[in-house]
Each structure stands twice: as C-alpha cells, then as structure tokens.
Design a protein around this nucleic acid. Structure first.
Lengths: 226, 226
DNA sequence: TTCATACTTCGATCGTAATCGAAGCATCCG
DNA sequence: CGGATGCTTCGATTACGATCGAAGTATGAA
C-alpha cells in the first residue's frame, strides 16, 4: 500500500516554526552557532539544542566543532534546493512572514541562497553565461563548456579545485522571487565568493540580502551582459 | 528580523503522516474522494475530512463537488513539483516507507507524477525530444520549437488547446528515482493521456506505477529514441 | 416521502512534542 | 588550578493537534 519516500518526517522537521526560522537563517549560507540560531528563532538555548539535534538526525544539518563553538550548516546543496522550492510555493500562496518593507526589493535584487547568488542578479548571471555559450543546459545538469572553463579561469577561479570536489560544478536552483533558474553548485559558490573577495558585494548582516557597491555593480553588469 | 516566505505552515501540513499519505496518493494524478483518501491514510472519514479542510485552506488541494461525491486533487502543478522535490531528498536519505519489493522496479521504470510521466521512461521522453531539437532548454523554462510543434500535432495533440491554458506548456520536473528532469506541464499531461488513450500504457490500480503493454513499449521506444 | 450514502461539524479524549529551569560536560583563558 | 563560556541532557510542565464517536447536513435513490 505505502509506496515512495517518506516525506512526513522531512515535513514535520520543517513544520515547526522554530526550526523553520533556523533553517531560513541558515539559508543565508553562513554556519551559525546554537546561540545565534536560538536568537533567530526566539527560543532558549536548551530548546534550540534539542531542535538542532533533530535536524541533524534527519540529515538536514551538519555540525562542525571548533573550540567551544559548534557551527551548524545545511548538510548539502540539495537541502537548500528543497527549501527554496518550499519557499517558492509558500511565496506564491502569499504566505510571507514579514510585512513588505524596504528590505524586500533588496532581497529580490540579490541575495544569498545557501552558498550562491540568487535573485535578479543570480538569474542574470546564469542567463549571461548560457547566452555566451559558456554553460550548456543538459537536463537539469548544467555543463561548463570549454569556453566556459577558460572564462572561469580568467576570472581567477581555480578550475582544478572545483573538479576535485564530489559536488556538481554547475547545477540549477529555482529562484522563488524570479521563478527562474539561477546558478548553484561549486561554481556558483566560487563566483559569489569571488564577488565578495573583490569587494564588489557584501552580505547584509542578519539578512540574506547581498549589497553591491556602485563600482561592483558596474563591474558585474559589465562582465555578465544579457 | 523575519524574512522570506513562511515554510513552517507548508511543512507542518506535509509533516503529518496521515496527510503525507493522502498527498502521496494524490500524486497518482487522479482526483480522489475523502472516503478513498481515508483508506489510503488508514484513518476514519471524520479525521480525513478535517485533514482535507486544512490542506485545502493551505492551498495544496482543491475540491470539486460532483453529486454527493467530493473529489480532491492537488491544486496546481507546482504542488506536485514541490512534493517531488521533497521525495527526492527523502529518497536520498534512504527514508522509504516500504520494504523494497517487486513493485519498486516498476515504479522506477514508469510512473505517474501528478499528471505526467516520470521514472526512466519520463526522463527518456524529455531527453529524446531535446536531442531531436523539438524542445529547447532555456533556464528551467522549456520551449517547444517549431519542429516540436509539428511533431506534437502529428501525434494527434491539439496544440491550440495547449496554448489556451494559462499553465506553461512545457516545464521540467525533477525525478526522485532518476535524479534527472522529466517533462511536466500541459504537454507532459497531454502526452501521458495520449499513451493511455492509445492503449500503450495503463495505470496500475492503487499505485503510481504505469505499465506499458509489449506493443505500447515498442511504439514508445520507437517514437522516442535516444 | 423515506431511506441511504457521502460527508462535515461538534465535543471529548489522549499522546506527543515544544518549552524551559536546573544540572552536567566540555573547552578555553588567566 | 579556578572561573567563565558554550552547549547538552534531564525532568516536569504545558499546549496543541490528531483521533474518533455522535450528531448534523446535503444529495441521490426508491
């Protein structure tokens, strides 16, 4: 009778408001400590600890001990993709937790999606690379073309390093604000890191928003035309 | 502080085992009555009724009254896509509710995903159409090429009808068994309907499995080579 | 009309899980 | 070695929601 994967467990993990808040916070891409996550969720440290243990047992999170801190992060790209898909549906239902404010446009323009760039700019990035035939669409697996590899190395990204990882280099991720795909995978991560390292953009504190400097915006739009 | 869509509500709706069973049953694509859904979930009619009201309020389901029956179905394609994404993650965690049995290979080979074909055959269908340049990948939005339109009409599908609907004609849907995209959207639905109408395939009762006849299998593989 | 079917609503019970205070480990610092 | 910080575990409370019996509503059949 019963067939297929058990979605109830995953659903119930996401279904608790405290846990959902923590997961949303972790969609910012940075690993966070239980204390920080407790603040995000508005609960005590003890409760947060219990929630985090469950999320880890469910495979959604991994932790890394560092001194007396424990850093929690989403366990894989796939968790981020799944959450983004849920957010997409929730957004389409008009289920937002915040009154639309000045922060909202910034989020739609550019934000962090786990570890890569999302929003208008994220979509543009992928579109531009595809238009330049530096990335090829094959199913949901994107492939970097030869021209793409050259381009990426010219930007100062170590292609050999990307290859070493077992993660896919390119993959699509559905954007809940744009309803289109943007670039995820280790290349997506490397590019966001690059933009930040070059000082073109920086992450807003306590938000997923990414803010480009005037100079950085110019450079970005120039490098990735439509 | 809080930002982004509220995923907790959606998660909690999916998170109850009874509701998850009903949603999984509805992924079979057929509209079902509360009585049938109660049987699938192993609960009484009263409880099922309460669950269905919540799922409808949450926007996951719609109901259609017909005489003294009420037929519930997933409200949009997007719900199916979201659930398939959850199943994909759950499957990758090895969270299956059933001991692997003889039914499993049949599900992997060909099954219904809400209203279109999924599994090995579903993936092959999209791959073949892309290889023949009858469908073009552009972001996650697939586009039917001119050649594709001709092909589709030659198969006896009313292209004008497809265009009338506000739903996208082609879209990708991530396959939890193959981990690749297959074809969703109104064209995906029309093609599955075609296969069944032609007698090439039929739905297994009480399962998402789609079984091809020998003749139907031959015709399908012939029409959609790799 | 009367009866039957399909479903919803109401009300009460019961279980589970979220929550937090208090106590217990672990790690770092001086 | 204290002493402080960061976190987990334990235990008790509490609140919410799943469940079902019983009663109510709607549609169709006889």
């Amino acid at each position: 009778m019963k067939e297929g994967p058990d979605i109830a467990l995953i659903g119930s993990l996401i279904g608790d408001p405290a846990r959902a808040n923590m997961l949303t916070a972790l969609m910012g891409g940075q690993a966070l400590t239980p204390t920080e996550l407790a603040a995000h969720a508005g609960i005590t440290l003890q409760t947060a600890s219990s929630h985090l243990a469950k999320l880890e047992a469910g495979g959604l999170l991994t932790q890394r001990k560092q001194g007396r801190h424990r850093y929690y992060a989403l366990s894989e790209d796939e968790v981020g993709l799944m959450l983004e898909s849920l957010m997409g549906f929730a957004a389409s239902r008009g289920l937002t937790r915040h009154r639309p404010g000045p922060k909202d446009p910034a989020l739609r323009k550019a934000r962090v999606c786990y570890n890569h760039l999302a929003g208008d700019y994220g979509v543009r990035l992928l579109d531009s690379l595809v238009a330049a035939r530096q990335i090829e669409m094959m199913g949901d697996d994107l492939a970097l073309t030869d021209a793409g590899r050259v381009r990426v190395e010219a930007l100062g990204i170590d292609y050999a390093m990307l290859q070493k990882s077992r993660r896919p280099i390119c993959r699509t991720c559905l954007d809940w604000s744009e309803r289109r795909s943007h670039l995820a995978g280790s290349l997506g991560e490397a590019l966001l890191t690059l933009f930040i390292d070059k000082g073109w953009a920086r992450r807003e504190k306590d938000s997923r928003a990414v803010r480009f400097s005037d100079e950085g915006e110019k450079a970005f739009l120039d490098l990735f035309p439509l």
